[in-house]
Amino acid sequence: MNAVYKRDLKSYFSNMIGCLYIAFIVALVGIYFSFYNMGNGYPYFGDVLNSISYIVFLALPILTMRSFSDEIRTGTDQILYTSKASITRIVMGKYMAMVTVFGIAMGILCFCPLIIATCGSHDFKVDYSCILAVFLIGAAYIALGMFISSLTESNIIAAVLTFGVLLLLQMMTGITSFIPTTSLASFVGCIIAVIAVSVIYYTLAANVIIASGLGVTGTIALVVLYFVKKSVYASLIPNVLNKIPLTDSLNNFSLKTFDVTAIIYYISVAVLFIFLTTQSIQKKRYS
C-alpha cells in the first residue's frame, strides 16, 4: 500500500493535477472568505464553506479520473496486479493518495477560522465540524470517482461520468420535487427499481434463476404490501432519493449540530465504493 500511496501522491504533484486542484479550491474559497467573512464581517466560515461546497465537489473528477483508467490504458496495472500486494491494498493506496491531496486543500482552509478569530467573535466548533464534514463528503465522492475510473480506460469518460453523477446528486432535491408523491407513483417506482436490480444482477452474474427469482419475489412482495398497507408508499421514492445526496446533511453542521449519523453515512459510502472498486477490478481479471 505504501509504495502505491507514495508513487501516486508524488505523481499528483509532479504532473500538476494535485497542485491545480489545491490552488483552485484555495483560490475559490479564498475569494468567498475575503468577501463574506473579511469584507462583510460575517464570523461563520462554516456557512460560507457550505454554500460553495458544491463547486469543491464538482471539481473532484480531475483528481479521480486518472486513478485507475490511466493504469489500464498504459498497461501499468500489470506491475500492480502481478506484485505480491493484494488488490485491496493497491486500491487503498490509491484512494489514500487522493484523499491526502484533498486533505491538504482542506488543511489549508483550516487557517480561515483562525484568521476570523483574530478579528473578534468566532465559533471554532461549528467551523471545524463543517470543514470535517466537507472533507468526509469529499472522501466519499473520491471513492465514487475512483470506482467510476476503475470501469473505463479513458480518463475523459471517467471524468465526465463522475461529473455527471456528482451533478445529478447536487440537483437531486430539485429533481425529486417533480416526482409525484402519491402511493401509486412510488409503488410503480419501486417495481421499476426491483426489475432494474434483477436485470443488473443478471448482466453481472449471468444467473437466470436467481435474477428472475429476485425480480418475481420482489414484485410479489411489493404488490402484497401495496394492497395490505398502502400508506407505506406515500412519498416513498422522493424521500429515499432525497436521502441519497451526502450534502443534504451538511446544513446540520452549520446549524451547530454535530450530526454523527451523517458522519457514519459518509464513511459508509466511502467504504462501499472502495469495496466496489476492488470488486470491479476482480471482475475484470476474471472476464
Binding site: 508513487r7 498504459t74 500489470q78
Partner: peptide
C-alpha cells in the same frame, strides 16, 4: 509484459 509497465513520468 509485452508492453513494459512503465510510469513515464518517473
Amino acid at each position: 509484459p509485452e508492453i513494459p509497465p512503465l510510469y513515464i513520468d518517473m
